[in-house]
Design a protein around this nucleic acid. Sequence first.
RNA 1: GCGGAGAUCGCCUAGCCUGGUAGGGCGUGGGAUUGCUAAUCCCAUGCUUUCACGAGCACGGGGGUUCGAAUCCCCCUCUCCGCGCCA
Length: 426
Amino acid sequence: MIDPRILRERPGDVREMLSRRGVEHDLDALVAADAAWRRAASEADAARQRRNELGRAVAAAKKSGGDASGHIAEMRSAAGRLEALEAAQREAHGRYIGLAMSLPNMVHESVPTGPDSSANVVVREWGEARPAGGEHARIMEGMGLVDIERAAKVSGARFYYLVGDMVLLGRALVSHALDLADGRGYTAVQPPYMIRRDSMEGATVAEDLEEAIYSIEGEDLCMIGTSEHAMAAMHRDEILDGADLPIRYAGYSACFRKEAGAHGRDQKGIFRVHQFDKVEQFAFARPEESWAEHERMLGVAEEFYRGLGLPHRVVLLSSGDMGKVSAKTYDIEAWMAAQREYREAVSCSNCLDYQARRLRTRFRDKTSEATRHVHTLNSTLVATTRALVAIVEGCRTADGRIEVPRPLQRYVGKADIGAPRGRGPP
RNA sequence: GCGGAGAUCGCCUAGCCUGGUAGGGCGUGGGAUUGCUAAUCCCAUGCUUUCACGAGCACGGGGGUUCGAAUCCCCCUCUCCGCGCCA
């Protein structure tokens, strides 16, 4: 949710945001609902004040043994009026919230304006992006490192069994990411993989909830699409101590995605799947420090890919390509050698106070001070499946083995991966 | 899953039976005094809104009864104890 003050004082800026994002939204209805709600609230407020005064008068009269019947009669008639005013207030507030919750976040001035990814801007490139022939699905299946067919039989499309050394390599990515995060001031957190619907609604927008998120039938629970969802909601309805900021978490979890809008895209292998493991950077920051935190966070993710020796580039997403909760997003796109393309491996966003407002996460330095909403930021450190694809396609030796990136070797226990020693599935 | 007990302003707690402005202690912040640390005293210390005075809201959440609910009734959530089941 954006600050209602922006809506009231600078509606032109909000309109500009909508046009830059290419999103339709009934702003007039939202502004009207805001005004109606505030009016209804102050009317109901006045009626409550009158009721409270009368209540005190009744109590005083009864205490002194006097006759309170006159006041009680007046309260009786005021009660019906108050009820009607409260109903009007509830209705107006519901209308306002409904419209405000679906309004996307403001867009930062440094974000390029454009309809889609074609307007994204490449910020920098790293490493030598060499094309290669071996497609990850074929390589991995050929070496018995993944079983897509049986996963399809058991679970359906976009699932996979990882097998043998590929499991160790995935685990190594997670271990290395957690160690790096620890060294950069992040506290590791393994969050709940299912969260209640109202928590999910605070962390994401309604349309993503429908398209991307799995719900548990018969329960008020959703599967997280990323640990970001669980981390963002972690301090909901809290007032944090400003001295504790920034709070940096490295969320480690499985991620679940419906991929409902992706029919036909990236069908092969483990590139686009319903489930993967991810280590995610998440930060709660002071508003005046959040842009520096954003760059810092991107830097940690870049450090991870540089350390693995994986060629990649940093891209600043355009206004039309960004998520609705983000004010500015960088992607790190890793080189996928067989696709001969850079593809998204990391997404690093500053959400300003948009999530914090929805989740009521605030802070202050002294109890005498007014509360302010924190800023929330999130960035992938590593999504295992995407990184595995980049490694399998990009790190092949002349004799067809997969070279384990140096920082991962201590976790995998070997320098390269060949065919399994007769233990893989036939 | 069954039985029992609970949830009050950062922490502890009173109030609930018997409905009528949510009180106290600790901690924290500010001030006074005392040649220091300490002790003592005063003020402030849930949230929202207001330039301010003030007003409203708040006793886990939501309904209901009532002129009026922390208090009575119903539903839900969570915590603790015992039993059952279980990695």
